[in-house]
């Protein structure tokens, strides 16, 4: 949508949009790589202090009531975290006895369909699709596919992550835990 509009505004605007798309993609790919590489402390530095990291619950509803599919803020969620809690999630991995991640799981994140939905006041609203693939021990395998809505705030010549809303394509979580970050 924004791609079409930008195209109509002339070559200049198109180049600017392409450059911005490139910056956004590089940021998201870098961030995913930090998590896949288990560089969690580095990952924390990409988060804004006021980040809201939220994964609502999803339910099967009839088509008529599909507006009730996701829980809303204030309802229950799988993640409803501020930076302090996210920091704790990272710290737990290094203090010992974090059994869900010891031995560590092996993860790979695929980030695709990245679109900049809005760009105003130094903040970009970015939607993307993801797949998080995890194996553990000898034969356990989990994967989660979903959509993310991120707010990237411009900071210096890069971004910090100021909001992440994660919408999974699962109702009952089919894994024994969600011990990884999305």
């Amino acid at each position: 949508m924004s791609g079409q509009r930008n195209a109509n505004e002339g070559t200049e605007a198109l180049y600017a949009a392409m450059l911005r798309q490139y910056e956004v993609e590089q940021f998201l790919f870098y961030e995913a790589d930090l998590l896949d590489s288990r560089r969690y402390d580095d990952w924390l530095t990409l988060l804004a202090d006021d980040i809201h990291y939220w994964m609502p619950l999803r339910r099967t509803t009839t088509a008529r009531e599909v507006d009730r599919e996701f829980t809303r803020p204030g309802g229950m969620a799988l993640f409803d975290n501020d930076k302090e809690i996210l920091t704790m999630r990272v710290q737990r991995l290094s203090v010992g006895r974090a059994w869900a991640e010891d031995p560590p799981s092996r993860t790979r994140r695929l980030i695709t369909n990245i679109r900049v939905l809005a760009d105003a006041d130094g903040e970009l609203q970015v939607a993307c699709n993801f797949k998080l693939y995890r194996t553990r021990l000898n034969s356990e395998e989990d994967s989660w596919i979903g959509r993310r809505e991120d707010t990237l705030r411009r900071q210096g010549d890069s971004f910090v992550l100021a909001r992440r809303h994660i919408f999974l394509e699962q109702t009952v979580i089919l894994s024994q835990n969600l011990s990884n970050l999305f």
Partner: peptide, 11 residues
């Protein structure tokens, strides 16, 4: 009741 029953599967 707070909306949403958190559900997951364990083997």
């Amino acid at each position: 009741f707070l909306d949403g029953v958190v559900k997951n599967r364990i083997q």
